[in-house]
Write a protein that binds this DNA or RNA. Structure first.
Lengths: 325, 325
DNA sequence: TTTGGCTGATTAATCGTTAAATCAGGGGGC
DNA sequence: GCCCCCTGATTTAACGATTAATCAGCCAAA
């Protein structure tokens, strides 16, 4: 490994001058800067992150903690986050909090122990991370709007509910996975707010809810709005066993546009998160905090996008009533 | 942050002694070790990873490069790898190679630039990572058996093919996604090797293959063996459109036991990777290499496990012929 | 000619930890 | 009583980069 000293002695100058030339900090003549930079390039110089970290106290590494890495949504977040971080010269160290709030705290502490400059957290359902000695940005939970960035889950719920209303459904089922999850509650709240006065909605939760939903459809409901593609897929299986056709007899929607949504049958109407924007904004906010600035782009929520596929259609036995929004 | 010096002056001893006591390296009396350790604990001492890295040249961080973080299988690998690394006091820095072999090399180089002690690579389809200045362990591609650990894809293929043969199928379709992928070729080779002499198998690839498979089923094939749950799901959609019932008219199998496999309808018979073992072994091998040892556990392949669910059954219009393995 | 200011560079200290070399002192062998 | 060895510590230097403080010239103004 070639160090700053070698470049210095090679050119016949002091190490400090090389450092100044490379970082553009001190006072070095134009020509000298050029000479040093080209020579550094030639020798393939890479600054030692360890030495820099020791001296400056900054590692250039962010910690990423996710509730459960096996969540199918994780890859997209991790990927975009890692790419966004890359553009700012930051690396991402991962950890998962394996289901418990306690493990979440442990993971955060370990990452801090490793000297990360900041933390990105997708919190456990219903938890808020402890205060940490480094900046923290919370993703997908609108706790503290100053250092949180989240998809507009309520808005997404409204989008899909409005779609269902627009194509003529009047009696619907809303199916959530776990009422502890703030995200899911937000989505449902958004759905409910977007329903019209003449509509009727039953809200069910969890595995029991799947069975209840079948009954409700048999009693006349024509659409099922779920808070997750996974729940939608499970619902689809139950409907199949109950010999209820999708979308002919009942429309079905998911949430998150997971990998299998476009290739299941029928292709699932769902709501997609703008993961790129969320990631970019999270990185923006945390880098601002690290530099001690106030981020100009506060954690407003990021709009979601309705993806209409084949699992939703106009209700059977009912005239098409198309309302303008 | 409390440093080694503070503990030293606090107790009235030199910094070197504290370091020796904490790492157990030099010569320190039992009592002194105890005093130092308890005092360090009290003060909440955390060694500076930066300083240690600078001095020893080791960061305690591994780089993980995956072909495409959006692959639904990634989370499980990342999670188990991160947990296995954790037990050895190592952190994991992620990067993805976004589809191209060139990006893969770039990602590797960036991680090396960050000073990782070793690299874990799940290579792009059909590529072999360049030589690197740190130890590299390749996952799921049996290139160099000394520093590679892989699921026994051929064995997995054999498992599922034998299952299909055992329950009486005689004319089958094998459906792969991309012939460039060594993993998929291995799986198919395993399937073919396990077929009986009196069986007949057609191999198709990609999106076109899905349509061909439908035709082949209509011509008399009673089972479709795919190399991925994603392909199986796509196949299922096509079969549905063609009004072919699974498993009544055709049995269907996947690969990898992805999140949706148990909840699709019918629940998918598939082959699961022992991700825990793969991850643990990968970490074992790489830590050995980092310590300069020869790993005792060479990269043998890790057996796969057949998961029988409802998508496979005895062929219709045919006597049940149950053979012993 | 002296003083002051500016430029472009150098010195030296520092971050926290580790490792090799050194040292003080006690006990045992002869 | 002398020498040697062993134990338990200490000194010292180093890892590579950054940064405050300093310094040598040089030019211009007084």
């Amino acid at each position: 490994m070639v160090s700053i000293k070698e470049i210095a002695s090679d050119i016949g100058v002091s190490a400090a001058t090389v450092s100044n030339a490379l970082t553009g900090k001190g006072r070095v003549s134009k020509e000298m800067v050029a000479r040093i930079k080209t020579r550094a390039e030639e020798l393939g110089y890479r600054p030692s992150t360890a030495a820099r970290a020791l001296k400056t106290g900054q590692t250039g590494i962010l910690g990423l903690v996710m509730p459960d890495l096996t969540n199918p949504l994780f890859p997209r977040i991790a990927q975009t986050l890692s790419q966004a971080a890359e553009t700012k010269g930051l690396g991402i160290l991962i950890a998962d909090s394996r289901g418990s709030a306690h493990e979440q705290s442990e993971a955060l502490r370990r990452l801090v122990g490793r000297g990360v400059d900041g933390l990105l957290v997708v919190p456990q359902r219903g938890t808020t991370p402890d205060p940490m000695p480094v900046p923290v940005v919370v993703i997908n939970t609108a706790s503290d709007p100053l250092n949180a960035v989240s998809a507009d889950h309520a808005g997404g719920g409204a989008l899909v509910a409005r779609h269902i209303a627009d194509i003529g459904h009047r009696r619907v089922v809303i199916l959530g996975g776990d009422p502890v999850s703030e995200v899911q509650r937000d989505r449902i709240a958004g759905m409910q707010a977007a329903l019209r006065p003449d509509m009727q909605a039953s809200v069910f939760w969890g595995d029991a809810g799947v069975a209840q939903a079948v009954a409700e459809v048999q009693a006349g409901a024509t659409a099922i709005l779920t808070t997750s593609d996974l729940i939608a897929l499970r619902m689809r299986s139950q409907l199949m066993q109950a010999q209820i056709a999708v979308p002919e007899q009942v429309s079905l929607t998911g949430f998150d546009d997971m990998s299998f949504a476009p290739i299941m049958h029928p292709a699932l109407t769902t709501v997609a998160q703008d993961v790129d924007t969320i990631a970019a904004r999270a990185i923006d906010i945390i880098t601002s905090h690290i530099r001690g600035e106030t981020p100009d782009t506060h954690g407003q929520t990021v709009p979601m996008r309705l993806v209409v596929r084949n699992s939703t259609t106009i209700p059977k036995d009912q005239p098409t009533r198309r309302h303008l929004p």
